[in-house]
């Protein structure tokens, strides 16, 4: 089955009083999605449940951001990211995502939880979009997707190092 990546160029928005909530299992398959998610992603519950979270991946998102996201949450830490998502109808929407592991009684990771809030617009336009475009260009400059992603990770790391900030500090500073 080929994944539909067609885009409409229409941007969707959600209320700032709303929070998009999803939970996934350890493999990233959706185990819970709230109504805000289903509405904005243009999905119904049956299609959302058990689907991989990459279902709403937008082609303009650098893969290295998701690599960093998974590295972080698999290490048991939280991560914040500005993310461009694709509704299944081809529309797109920006979120300020906060992804955290969910822990069991013994402190083990039993799944992941993502709260997405309405992002501030200004850092998206002035900071995030240029950086993502740059990272995406790095990724696309490699024939091998994996190589491209690693190169983009290195580029992102270098960028943060030269600014002398951690990724978290950077996200909260913009």
């Amino acid at each position: 089955m080929t994944v539909d990546r067609s885009l409409t160029g229409r941007e969707r928005f959600f209320e700032s009083s709303d929070v998009i909530v999803t939970k996934t299992d350890l493999k990233g398959r959706i185990t819970y999605a709230n109504r805000t998610f289903l509405n904005i992603a243009n999905l119904d519950v049956r299609h959302a449940l058990n689907a991989p979270h990459s279902l709403i991946r937008h082609p303009d998102m650098p893969r290295c951001v998701f690599w960093l996201l998974w590295e972080t949450i698999q290490a048991g830490k939280e991560i914040f990211a500005y993310v461009l998502n694709r509704a299944v109808n081809g529309d797109h929407y920006w979120v300020f995502a906060h992804v955290t592991p969910s822990f069991g009684e013994q402190g083990e990771i039993i799944g992941y939880h993502s709260n997405r809030r309405v992002p501030r617009r200004e850092p998206i336009d002035t900071v995030i979009k240029p950086i993502y475009a740059e990272l995406l260009a790095v990724e696309n400059s490699h024939a091998n997707r994996k190589d491209g992603m690693h190169a983009a990770v290195v580029a992102l790391t270098e960028k943060l190092k030269s600014a002398k900030v951690s990724y978290d500090e950077f996200i909260f500073s913009i």
Binding site: S16, V19, F96, H98, N115, R117, V118, D168, E169, F172
Partner: peptide
């Protein structure tokens, strides 16, 4: 001792 990590209040009623 990380103080920039504030509680995100967006969407919090």
């Amino acid at each position: 001792q990380v103080y920039y990590r504030r509680v995100i209040t967006t969407g919090m009623p």
